[in-house]
């Protein structure tokens, strides 16, 4: 048994870290969200005007909804890509290790590089447009490819698919193989086995992966900044501009705080569902 002093000594640094770099900034954020800006100066005057503005100005709910739509699409697409991939790797592949590494490797490449790569692919002089024109499918470069919500969804899906893949793959790897054999033994063909045994047992992983993809995409500001264009603006871009050029920290803090509460509510919900889904 460890002494009380030892335990305190061990626990202190991480607790201090969390307090200084996580809790304190959040506390500041909340405080700011109730203050106001008057003549380019932040005034410590407590009020709810920022939150009222969020509801009154139609722009904010619109951008927030668009962000959620984009994050939702990214989540859905990542799940659709990850499920077959994880199933193939876990149950069908003989070269598991190699394929697993291939899925992981993109994570080692900088986010910026990957986002710029999509810019190069999707732009009007980009790889895709040049190819389509060369083949003769289109005469003029397709403009919707870049600077659109579509481009943002595509890029974010590419970037966050490993985050959905990994937990799904992990939960599939944890499915005892004799359960799969039992299903076959009882007459279930491979498709039936997938839907009745493998899919329900990998749902906790899918839920975790979906949460990653949704939360990370929802708060993303680089992809919309680089390739989103005006129609691809997301809520974090608004926050960035409010803290930057617009110099309205209180309003930015109010949006951030709302977003934070939204995500926390989501995580709380996910945890409730996850408890229902785990069986052991």
């Amino acid at each position: 048994m460890y002494s009380r002093a030892y335990k305190t000594a061990v626990a202190a640094p991480p607790l201090a870290w969390v307090a200084v770099f996580l809790l304190a900034p959040y506390a500041f954020l909340f405080c700011y969200s109730f203050w106001t800006v008057s003549q380019q100066v932040i005034v410590h005057h407590w009020n709810l005007a920022n939150y009222r503005q969020l509801l009154d100005n139609a722009m904010y709910p619109t951008v927030l909804l668009r962000s959620m739509r984009i994050a939702g699409s990214v989540t859905l697409l990542s799940l659709l890509l990850s499920f077959p991939l994880a199933y193939y790797l876990s149950f069908r592949s003989r070269r598991k290790e190699l394929l697993y590494q291939l899925v992981i490797i993109p994570l080692w490449v900088s986010y910026l590089v990957r986002a710029y790569a999509w810019k190069t692919i999707l732009g009007s002089d980009g790889v895709l447009n040049t190819l389509l024109q060369y083949v003769g499918v289109i005469e003029h470069p397709a403009e919707f490819l870049l600077y659109s919500p579509f481009a943002v969804v595509l890029t974010l899906t590419h970037i966050y698919t490993p985050f959905t893949f990994l937990p799904i793959y992990a939960s599939m790897e944890h499915i005892p193989r004799n359960l799969v054999e039992a299903a076959q033994d009882l007459g279930a063909a491979p498709m039936r086995t997938f839907w009745t045994v493998i899919f329900p047992l990998s749902l906790p992983g899918a839920l975790a992966g979906a949460t990653f993809a949704f939360v990370l995409s929802l708060g993303d500001f680089l992809a919309p900044l680089l390739i989103g264009g005006p129609s691809g603006i997301m809520i974090s871009n608004v926050v960035v501009s409010l803290f930057g050029a617009a110099y309205n920290w209180p309003l930015g803090a109010a949006i951030s705080a709302s977003l934070l509460l939204l995500v926390l509510a989501l995580l709380f919900l996910v945890e409730r569902i996850e408890k229902k889904l785990s069986f052991s």
């Binding site: 005892p176 004799n178 359960l179 054999e181 039992a182 299903a183 076959q184 033994d185 009882l186 007459g187 279930a188 063909a189 045994v197 329900p200 047992l201 069986f279 052991s280």
Partner: peptide, 20 residues
């Protein structure tokens, strides 16, 4: 024949009951 076409059933060593 694949396992799912055989009129044979198995009782597995560790039961292999579906946990869900």
């Amino acid at each position: 024949l694949p396992p799912y076409r055989r009129r044979v059933n198995t009782v597995f060593q560790h039961y292999a009951l579906f946990p869900h």
